[in-house]
Design a protein around this nucleic acid. Structure first.
Lengths: 262, 262
DNA sequence: AAAGATTGTCTCTTACAAGAGACGCATGTA
DNA sequence: TACATGCGTCTCTTGTAAGAGACAATCTTT
């Protein structure tokens, strides 16, 4: 059985006299910096990942030497380093879908004026991989790279299309089914949504993450039947039926262009 | 007394019964993938970084679980993962200079038709952080992220401007002074070049990396006197004096726009 | 079909890194 | 002048992860 608990950052403290593996500490550090989105002092970093100060200093030094982290302006703060940027560019280069998807998303948001996003599964969770803000006065933006429970989003329903019931259950925890406003989704309904989305080839959700927006998503295939990513538009919840349909049509066309044998 | 020997990838084998730290192995793995620029089998990866197979399997599993690496299409090859891309984007977001520099470079290459690059120091070595190919029939391209000895480039001379003699010597090994064609640069000449570049505010080198190109570089400052990056154009070696001067003027203007109090 | 190479998993040992904590040096604040 | 708080470095111990190597299961080659 898969042990899903990668990076159980805080939470437990199982064995009292247990030491944490250095690599795991590093992974936690990176993840922590990703959430803070800013340079942070090493002391605070140690607190943040709940690691001993001495260990943290050692690890940070290694990472800085390697260029994965950099000391930020002041002198005693750290943040991501150039190496990570370079590796990230390597990833983009080796990944046609991401490269073209980014362009398509930028293009879509300019064309429609709506916020547009490219989403993928990332270690079992929904992730906004690239987003381009719309031209509307109010910005509907979720941070790139943010991990969001799958049931909260239209894309989540598409990304799970094709998986069997057991696989879906394994990816969705009970907490995930609780929406930001406190409502609880029924697992049955979610699974039904997924099935429906798989058939219709698109998905629209209204007022799930917040009360003012509607999310229109379509799948991007990496192989027939395999949903690799989704493209979505985040529009005001009162967008007309007609415009919604138009936008979905547009999305589907573009997604088809991205897909490989869809 | 900085111990420069991070990632002494191959080379020594000092203590016979010595074990390598997991984190270092990971750093080597990442660096190796960066050089190969493609997905690679775990067995080959182990060979490539000269690590035991069992260890490599364990580490790769951790990294894949964490999303830093991904199993590539076939199923038994690995390459960089989405997480690294996300971290890289975080780096870009937190780094005004890089963000604006990338745009400027893209713009410059479109405007001049020449290959344009943004370069920075990366753990003591010259690194092409972003490059945009020119429109010339022959492409002069060095891979992004490639680490090149400082003395081979015009940018290298500018990046070291402001450092004292000792600091320069510490950053340049004897091997670095040997050019690709076998000629050996004198350290004195290199240091003199640096001083001159610091005063004139630009640097031109001809036929250093290869016999057909000339490199025009200007510094980008992050603080008065502190060279954070360089922008450069790679042009045919027979480019006229006049056009060269024009291009340098253009570069200087753009670099000034990027600099913060320069 | 036998021999060889490769792949993924597992076990066991011991070299060594994670961590506790002390230390000196800066700050800040009573 | 004392007292507290945070930073960076260092030392020493011990729990544990790196690594050697055996294993069965595929694929290639001959």
């Amino acid at each position: 059985m898969q042990d899903g608990s990668v990076l159980a950052v805080s939470a437990d403290e199982k064995t009292p006299g247990s030491r944490e593996k250095g690599l795991n500490r590093v992974l936690e550090i990176l993840e922590f910096l990703h959430t803070t989105q800013r340079a942070i002092g090493i002391g605070d970093l140690a607190k943040g990942v709940n690691a001993p100060r001495s260990t943290t200093y050692t690890l940070v030094r290694s990472l800085v030497d390697a260029g994965l982290l950099e000391m930020a302006g002041d002198g005693n703060r750290v943040y991501f380093g150039k190496k990570l940027y370079l590796y990230g560019m390597d990833y983009v280069r080796g990944n046609d879908l991401l490269r073209r998807g980014r362009q398509e998303v930028d293009h879509l948001s300019r064309e429609t004026g709506e916020t547009s996003e490219l989403c993928m599964l990332q270690s079992g969770r929904y992730t906004i991989v690239h987003s381009s803000p719309g031209t509307r006065p109010f910005r509907i933006s979720s941070a790139t790279g943010l991990q969001i429970p799958l049931p909260w989003t239209a894309s989540g329903r598409l990304l799970l299309a094709g998986l069997d019931r057991a696989a879906i259950e394994a990816m969705v925890s009970d907490d995930d089914l609780v929406l930001p406003d406190g409502r609880k989704l029924r697992l049955e309904d979610f699974i039904a949504d997924i099935a429906k989305a798989g058939v219709t080839g698109y998905c629209v959700t209204s007022g799930l993450v917040d009360a003012y927006t509607k999310c229109l998503a379509v799948p991007v295939f990496s192989a027939p039947g395999k949903v690799e990513a989704t493209m979505c538009l985040v529009v005001p919840i009162d967008t007309s039926e007609e415009r919604t349909a138009d936008l979905i049509g547009l999305l589907r066309g573009r997604a088809a262009g991205l897909s490989i044998g869809g």
